[in-house]
Design a binder for these strands. Structure first.
Length: 274
DNA sequence: CGGGCGGCCTGGAGGC
DNA sequence: TGCCTCCAGGCCGCCC
């Protein structure tokens, strides 16, 4: 489900409704996520704390709590996080629920259970191994054509997989990798060893533009993504190539093609992307 | 060392 | 209707 834009949309939607509220109780109904949920540690670190602010690093949502601890949530492929009334009926796959002093609950659902829920004792994400080795945030000045060019030195392989490598740049998943490469006019199979400085620059600009526009439009709702208050995104109507095999390229009308890179579907225009 | 692939899970879509 | 296969927005570990 969620790449950087969806997590950022989620963060922005939850911040105004969560900040200042207090977590009174945590209910863990299923511990078998990508990593086991540590019930006792989670409760110890979050119960009785107030929510100070929401942050994001890569595709991780970080909820900073009073007392110095942090709640960290990753949505995996199918995770959803929403605020509902405390009395709202339990939904299928609602694995973790945080009951708030306001009479609401923060509900974590995740059918495929690839997500993560854990708490850090501090606000410093460096204290978790999950944040080691992550590349720059794409929407900051730490990410540029020069960043990409430098990261590509001595490497091989298709630029599409490279762009999805979180050590190179974070947050670009399968949808936005295809869309950014389309926008930059670069063929997804092109070797990273054969990309000019100008085209690295174009790719960085395209990735920033695509991710930023996706955030502005509330993210991509292909199946079931919503923000923290249940609103769907509408960037899916702006997708130029993703999941559009056989449809006309919006620029030239050629038929959009699908290829597989590292086991993931890639969509591109064979004429506009070289 | 880096790239590719299978595996982790469930559910929905489509074919027969 | 049912049963089967394939596929899905992420990430990790193993293999070459």
């Amino acid at each position: 489900m969620p790449e950087l834009p969806e997590v950022e949309v989620l963060r922005r939607s939850l911040e105004p409704v969560l900040v200042g509220d207090r977590i009174e109780r945590v209910e863990v109904r299923e511990t078998r996520l990508r990593e086991p949920v540590r019930r006792a540690q989670l409760a110890r670190r979050v119960v009785g704390t107030s929510i100070l602010r929401l942050d994001r690093r890569s595709k991780y949502l970080l909820i900073e709590l009073s007392g110095g601890s942090s709640l960290v949530i990753h949505l995996g492929m199918s995770g959803r996080l929403t605020v509902v009334d405390a009395a709202a009926p339990l939904e299928p796959h609602e694995h973790v629920a945080f009951f708030l002093a306001s009479g609401r609950r923060l509900r974590f659902r995740d059918p495929r259970r690839f997500g993560l829920v854990f708490a850090l004792a501090t606000h410093r994400r460096e204290d978790s191994h999950h944040f080691e080795g992550l590349g720059p945030e794409p929407l900051t000045e730490l990410f540029s054509g020069a960043t990409l060019e430098a990261a590509a030195v001595g490497r091989r392989g298709p630029v599409k997989s490279f762009l999805m490598n979180n050590a190179v740049v974070v947050g670009v998943g399968n949808i936005y990798a295809s869309e950014s490469l389309f926008q930059a006019g670069i063929h997804p199979s092109r070797s990273v060893a054969r990309i000019s400085r100008q085209r690295w620059q174009a790719l960085a600009v395209a990735a920033k533009e695509v991710l930023g526009r996706a955030i502005d439009q509330g993210g991509t709702t292909l199946n079931d993504f919503t923000d923290g208050t249940g609103h769907e995104g509408y960037f899916q109507v702006s997708l130029a190539v993703y999941d559009r095999e056989g449809h006309p390229c919006p620029r030239c009308g050629s038929s959009v093609r699908r290829q597989v890179h590292a086991g993931r579907s890639t969509y591109f225009c064979p004429r506009c992307q070289r």
